[in-house]
Write a protein that binds this DNA or RNA. Structure first.
Lengths: 333, 333
DNA sequence: CGGGGAGATGTGACCGGTCACACGAGCGGT
DNA sequence: ACCGCTCGTGTGACCGGTCACATCTCCCCG
């Protein structure tokens, strides 16, 4: 009567070698004669042997794992990073874990950090697009190898590798695009940011200043559509508003609706631009002009940065995709 | 010179008890005197002790983990299930892993199954909304505790616990809603399905038959927006089409765009209904009438079903949310 | 007052791999 | 012919917990 799962010593017996030799084969040690290796490989196949990751992690000290810590798994940017990490991790033979930080509250952050401090979690990718994420990042003990996916520019005062998509130039491009269409200025609905002057915002502001256009006050919104909708309603009331740069595509959706409710057509009366280029953006009516952000590549880059001594990845900068939601302003009546 | 991370024997020494007692405290054994427990707890706190999950898994045989196998992490339904599993798993103190199956190809499926066969992956939730997922489900060895999140009705010929959202009635409701508005019939753009007659489709068909309305041919589409757009274009050409039930909200987005391109207004000329109720649906212009699907609850239910002897969860059936994309047909000229 | 049982605690082996080191064979250089 | 080196392989201890079992104490009851 045999044990359910065969283990390394069973394989060794079947192959007529020692368990250590089997271990060497598992770990691709160069010091195994090719025909010995083949015998062991055959035995593994015959016994349907599967190495036990927990035992390996325990014995070797390394975990062979990567864990994503994030405040959210469904929002476009967050989900994209997760997808990228999974993809890159899987290709490297790593186990991929996810851990959500419920909120920026002290207890939640501490729990997440404790969770991820376990050696079997392996290296950590923190999605620091918000306070919960950056809180975790700051509370992370030095011993845990960590990289952060952050907003453009990184987080001040955090001594960790940080990878980000720099959409500053694209934000400026978007602003110039609108100005070029004849808009006197461009308004901005901002999503939450961890830094004083986000890349989107500073690109926008600088483009405006360079063009000598008035810089309107930023309208803040949250991650939720309801707050974006309120922001949009506020702007819709002002007839001087003819162009709006929205913090992301979701924001743009809600702003667009608010404009519609106020009887203002897009792009006839008001032009709008989003950020992210969600898959649906091209199928909007009108199709949304937006900035394409490759969050999946960002996630992949985080994993690359985690594996020892890899060259820093160069991420393509986000770029403006012009579609139908931007047009020249209606001529002044 | 001390070891970096304290272990159970260090705590035992600090507390003046045996390591087994510390282990008992860790596992909430009832047979520890309260004051002894407190002493141990204090020592743990003092030493900043963190148990090693890999060692626990190895020693005890159970993994304390749950792994989600899925073909996708970003599509609304898939991401929702993942979120639900993570949430429920975290609350149970489980480690949550993700593993993407790239495709339904034999090799990809086998790799995913091998990955998840490792005891340290723990119990498995397979998202079987597509062929890749159902392929994994069928290839899964009996020894691995597995539940599947599937389409309504479950997968024929698979002897595994299956949990699903039953949107059949909601599909019928949606169809009756459109019929009630005065449409002569309702067309259907279907997303891929693993079963002959999906719940959406059969609810729709039956409502049509009961009402004595003609049952038009189903227009198939893929998960991608481009194929949904093509499906929409085909329907837009036919002036008899005045109401469309779309397989999901993304499909509805692309269909709506196709209608618009053909010069047909929504809901003026054509009414459309989606499935899912993505967060943005309420902010569409016009706001989308759709069926709310709680995928997060589905994910949670999968975890509940996995923990021993829990009562089967009762999931609220999806329900129709009427908004602005449905209206009476234009009176015949 | 002694026996029995339950509760609290300690000891050794074990989970399934890995690591460090020992060992023997084959080879080249002097 | 001897030494030393590298290569391939095997042995014992170990990773950090858990399990099974032994032990000891205390209390209740006949």
């Amino acid at each position: 009567m045999k044990r359910a799962a065969p283990q390394i010593r069973d394989v060794a017996a079947a192959a007529g070698v020692s368990y250590q030799t089997v271990s060497r084969v598992l770990n691709n040690s160069p010091n195994v004669r090719p025909d010995t290796r083949q015998i062991v490989l055959d035995a593994m196949e015959r016994l349907q042997y599967r190495p036990n990751r927990a035992a390996r992690a325990l014995g070797s000290g390394r975990a062979g794992a990567v864990t994503v810590v994030t405040a959210n798994t469904t929002l476009y940017g967050y989900a994209g990073v997760l997808q990228g990490v999974e993809e890159a991790g899987r290709l490297l033979g790593l186990t991929v874990g996810v851990r959500v930080v419920e909120s920026e509250a002290d207890g939640d952050v501490r729990n997440a950090v404790e969770y991820v401090t376990d050696p079997s979690c392996g290296n950590v990718v923190v999605v620091a697009f918000d306070r919960a994420g950056s809180g975790v990042l700051r509370a992370m003990p030095d011993g845990v190898p960590t990289v952060a996916a952050t907003e453009a520019g990184g987080l001040p005062g955090v001594a960790r590798p940080m990878i980000f998509l720099d959409e500053r130039e694209a934000a400026a491009d978007a602003t110039r695009h609108l100005l070029g269409l004849g808009h006197r200025t461009v308004h901005h609905v901002a999503i939450p940011s961890e830094v004083r002057d986000s890349a989107r915002q500073s690109g926008w502001r600088q483009a405006l200043e360079r063009a000598g256009a008035e810089v309107p006050e930023v309208v803040p919104a949250g991650w939720d559509l309801a707050s974006a909708h309120r922001a949009g309603r506020a702007l819709a009331r002002d007839p001087a508003v003819t162009a709006i740069l929205c913090g992301n595509d979701d924001t743009a959706l809600a702003v667009r609706r608010a404009l519609h409710e106020a009887g203002r057509d897009v792009p006839g009366d008001v032009s709008i631009v989003g950020f992210d280029d969600v898959p649906g953006a091209a199928y909007w009516t009108p199709a949304l002009t937006t900035v394409r952000m490759d969050f999946v590549a960002l996630g992949r880059a985080c994993v690359t940065a985690l594996v020892d001594g890899a060259a820093p990845v160069r991420l393509d900068p986000p770029s403006l995709v012009v579609r139908e939601s931007t047009a020249p302003p209606r001529p002044f009546p």
